[in-house]
Computed example of a mutant assay.
Amino acid sequence: MVVISLLNRELRLICRQPGDVVNSLAFFSVVVALFPLALGAQSHVLQQAAPGLVWVAALLAMLLSLDGLFRADFEDGSLEQWMLSSHSMLVLVLVKVTAHWICSGLAMVVVAPVLALMLGLPPHCFGALLLSLLLGTPVLILLGAIGAALTVGLRRGGLLLGLMILPLYVPVLILGSGALQAALQGLPVVGYLLWLSCLTALAMTLAPFAIAAALSINVAE
């Protein structure tokens, strides 16, 4: 199938130049690892701060990897070929974002339990942690991809990307950290996860159209 072949191509390209993905994952790990050193070894202090720390670190790490999401394709003319291709621009955008999520968002989900242990989170919180990251990281990438598509033609668009996208990340940050905080206190987390699911469905439905439109505008200029 065309989608599978395109996805394989994107994954191979990321594997050949893994800098952005590795940097974001290393940033996520280092930021979380530094907080126990800064806050001390008191487990109750780390546990109370852990939900916000994990999600702020994930948010910033995801944002770090998004600036170059479409830049290489823009500079080498691949975006123009996308526009001239017989395939739908939406399919190409979804393939690009999916490949990026597999290599960055899914990698964060895998390492999150290890980092959670460093913050003193009990094992019964791991389910809420993994589910919230699985539902929240696609939203972070899709929203960030909109900003990356809007700033792809700018040489130094990283700061502008952050200023545009960070306010949109607030609902995901609140729900994701809220789910982890509820799990830590032994409260139900289903409500938080359902709201995150709604945001994920909404982002997957609407964001590709915005990304494709932003890329079309930049290529046409």
Rank of each mutant, 00 (worst) to 15 (best):
G105Q: 00
Q48V: 09
A38Y: 09
L202F: 13
R12S: 07
L7A: 13
M164Y: 11
R155N: 11
I146N: 10
V45C: 04
L69V: 08
M204Y: 11
L159N: 00
L53D: 00
T98P: 02
A220R: 15
W82T: 05
R156D: 10
W195K: 14
L193P: 04
L90F: 05
L106R: 05
L187H: 11
H124T: 10
N218W: 08
L59M: 15
F74Q: 04
T200W: 13
A183V: 10
A128L: 11
V139D: 05
C125T: 04
A112I: 13
V110I: 15
M83F: 15
M164A: 14
S43M: 04
V56Y: 04
I102G: 06
R71P: 01
F35R: 03
P113G: 11
L180P: 05
I14A: 14
A38Q: 06
C103V: 11
V152T: 11
Q17C: 12
V111D: 03
I141M: 07
V172R: 02
L187K: 14
S24D: 09
F28V: 07
F209S: 09
G19C: 01
L166R: 07
I174L: 15
F74S: 01
G157E: 02
L159T: 02
L215R: 04
A57C: 06
H100G: 05
R16G: 00
A145C: 08
T137V: 09
V54H: 02
G147Q: 10
L154R: 06
A57L: 05
V219F: 11
P171T: 12
I4N: 01
L150F: 03
E221L: 12
L215K: 06
V109Y: 01
A58W: 04
T200S: 14
V139P: 01
A99T: 10
I211M: 06
G127F: 11
F35K: 01
G52C: 09
P36K: 07
